[in-house]
Simulated assay, not measured.
Amino acid sequence: MTMNLPNLLTVLRLLAAPGVAIMFLYFSRPLADWFALVLFVTAAITDWFDGYLARAWKQESKLGAMLDPIADKAMVVIALMVIIGFSSWSAWLVLPATMILFREVFVSGLREFLGDVAGTLKVTNLAKWKTTFQMVAIAVLFSQGVFEHYLAVSAEGLDPGQVQAALAGAAEDTQNLRWKSWAMHSAGILGLFLLWVAAALTLVTGWDYFRKALPHLKDET
């Protein structure tokens, strides 16, 4: 096993995956949301760098090929778990997250079953786009949590009537509630849209992998 820079970045991304959840155990919100967002975005950026550097420096290795998809899946699964855990469990969030989690488990099991012929399930360009949409969607949804808690902090001490008046523009918005509310709702809508796109790509790529694996799943007669 070779521990070069690309592999080191992959290992750090793998370790960052549980770190996203740990942020919410040791820090209060919105600080935890900020730390989780920065950690997730930084780790997601390394997903591009480690592959690029491995190819550019001709340092591609079996260790990196094995760890890279594991790190990606760990980041997505744990981040979605955290987001759902701190959400209102809306069906618009839970359904695409469920589709994504189901596909990741299904394809991982398929690869494990195929063993030596798992190379037939090579990562496609569409699967790379799927991962990109997942990463961006999760980052946007984490930012929604940041805006939500800054809005709550700004509205603290105000009665509901004052908050509604400020949001409606009927009263002076001394706490900048309007733009924080707009940012919170915009991040939520954009994040959900991107997550649904990622879920659709997830199902398409999952079916593609299953179709390619079918010849190896037939019983010999």
Rank of each mutant, 00 (worst) to 15 (best):
R103W: 04
A168M: 11
S186I: 07
A118G: 12
G109M: 11
V123M: 06
W207P: 00
L121G: 03
A97V: 05
S61P: 08
L53M: 15
L114Y: 10
K130S: 01
F210M: 10
L12D: 08
Y52C: 02
L63D: 07
W34R: 05
I70A: 07
A21V: 08
A79I: 00
E104C: 03
V41F: 04
V105T: 13
R178V: 11
Y26N: 11
N7D: 09
L192A: 08
T131D: 00
T120N: 13
V163R: 04
G85V: 02
M81H: 04
H149V: 01
M1S: 15
S28G: 11
A199M: 08
F133A: 04
H216V: 01
Q134G: 02
S181C: 06
A170I: 02
D47S: 05
D68L: 02
A17Y: 05
Y150I: 02
E148F: 10
M1Q: 14
D72N: 01
G51D: 05
V140K: 01
W179T: 11
G206V: 02
T2N: 15
R55G: 08
D33G: 01
I100V: 10
L63Q: 09
E112L: 11
A74L: 07
G85S: 14
M184V: 04
D219H: 13
P69G: 02
V140S: 02
T120W: 12
G19C: 09
K212D: 09
K218E: 12
L12A: 15
W48H: 13
F86N: 06
R13H: 05
W196H: 14
T202H: 04
Q162H: 10
L203P: 02
L5M: 14
D159E: 13
I138Q: 00
S108M: 13
T131C: 05
R211V: 12
R13P: 03
E156T: 10
P6C: 11
F49Q: 08
T205M: 03
A21S: 12
D116Q: 14
G19L: 05
T120H: 14
P18S: 11
A71E: 02
M99W: 06
F147H: 10
A97K: 01
I84Q: 01
I78T: 06
T221M: 10
A65G: 13
F147V: 01
K122I: 02
F49G: 00
Y26L: 14
A170E: 15
Q134E: 12
G109E: 08
A43E: 03
E104L: 03
E104P: 00
I78S: 04
W34C: 06
W89N: 10
A118V: 05
P18D: 11
A118R: 13
L194A: 07
P30N: 11
W89E: 09
L194E: 07
I100A: 00
L114D: 06
L67D: 07
F35N: 06
V204C: 06
D208S: 12
P69F: 03
A21F: 13
A187T: 15
D159H: 11
T10H: 08
M66L: 15
L9I: 08
F142T: 00
S154F: 06
A44S: 14
T46S: 14
Q162S: 10
M3F: 15
P30T: 10
P96I: 01
M3I: 15
F102K: 03
F210S: 04
T205N: 10
T221D: 12
